[in-house]
């Protein structure tokens, strides 16, 4: 064991000296086996979708590790098709965290200016990428994760916990159900954001087996099931924006009491996606039946209005407030909407 550690450390030191320290971290997406990752996806079409996402994710990840200029890494991410660009950016942000080990230039204190260089419209993904890395590296040190999040934008810091929850769900949950206990070490809304990230991971694990997904959610503490479904809604849009009707077909599988949570996730994903590439979003939404696209556009308007209304609030948890007020409006809208009535 000791010999192995010494050997690894020596190799790393040699690479550092040769300025190729990042080589051990590079990943070839073609060699990643999604079955080994534990994803329970059977349909080939969806398996291919996940492969494409991983290709983008590790494309961004590898670019950020190997490029000395953050802008060049951003350009590499931009070369992916619009559907997959956000994943490339997320991967790049995760690599950013690794770089922070080796260079002060990439300290998390400097994350936001560098996030601008990497690709400003994708900043949501950057926070999630940081959280993903926190899950991998600092799972056992929750105070450190909190400290890192405190250095981030007060509005968006919760996305870091979303990334943490996603990593936990994707890599640890199936092996050890107690992995979710790590969320309880985070205070207040941070914990809920972890469950939202966990919900996203459930979509990746069970995207063509809604019954299993629902069963998994039902084992979660009731207080957080809504957050899990928000995560599912987020993931559905992020992975299948080119087929947004899936957001509606999957909604048939969501228990009525969690429907507004699910559509909250859908709405937040659309909001983020619009920031990243509004033309592409328009193009995708045009594929929907008018009733469905009207519903989603109304949800986006709610997100915008509720954001503007934050000015009236004097609390400091603005992201939580925003999410909460959007959820309330969506709940009201769902009660009136055709979507709800068709389900009744």
């Amino acid at each position: 064991m000791l010999t192995a550690i010494i050997t690894m450390a020596s190799v790393l030191l040699c690479l550092l000296a040769a300025r190729r320290w990042y080589v051990p971290f590079l990943r070839n997406p073609d060699r990643i086996d999604i079955d080994k990752l534990g994803l329970k996806i059977v349909k080939e079409e969806r398996r291919q979708r996940v492969r494409d996402i991983l290709t983008a994710f590790f494309g961004g990840f590898n670019a950020m590790l190997s490029e000395s200029d953050t802008r060049k890494a951003g350009a590499h991410c931009e070369a992916f098709p619009p559907l997959f660009r956000p994943f490339a950016q997320e991967g790049a942000a995760m690599a950013f965290s690794i770089r922070s080990f080796f260079s002060f230039k990439y300290s998390t204190r400097k994350f936001e200016p560098l996030s601008d260089q990497l690709g400003r419209p994708y900043f949501f993904m950057h926070y999630i990428g940081i959280g993903f890395w926190c899950g991998m590296a600092w799972r056992r040190w929750p105070k450190l994760v909190i400290r890192i999040s405190e250095r981030l934008h007060p509005f968006y810091k919760y996305l870091c916990f979303d990334g943490f929850g996603f990593e936990t769900g994707l890599f640890n949950y199936l092996k050890d159900k107690n992995a979710l206990n790590s969320f309880s070490r985070f205070p207040g809304f941070a914990r809920r954001a972890c469950y939202q990230g966990f919900g996203r991971s459930l979509w990746f694990l069970y995207m063509d087996d809604p019954a299993s997904l629902r069963r998994q959610v039902s084992t979660i503490d009731e207080a957080y099931r809504g957050d899990c479904y928000s995560g599912v809604g987020l993931a559905v849009i992020f992975t299948h924006l080119d087929a947004p009707e899936i957001a509606f077909s999957f909604s048939e599988q969501v228990e009525t009491e969690y429907l507004s949570d699910y559509f909250l996730g859908v709405s937040l994903a659309l909001y983020a996606r619009r920031m990243m590439n509004p033309d592409y979003l328009d193009q995708c939404l045009q594929k929907l039946a008018p009733r469905q696209s009207d519903f989603l556009l109304s949800a986006l308007r709610i997100c915008d209005l509720r954001f503007d209304q934050l000015i009236a609030r004097s609390t400091s948890d603005h992201y939580r407030d925003w999410r909460q007020s959007v959820a309330e409006d969506l709940d009201a809208m769902l009660h009136q909407s055709a979507v709800a009535s068709s389900r009744r």
Partner: peptide, 9 residues
């Protein structure tokens, strides 16, 4: 940044 909400960073 935003129209109504001041920059927070």
């Amino acid at each position: 940044w935003k129209v109504t909400v001041p920059s927070m960073t």
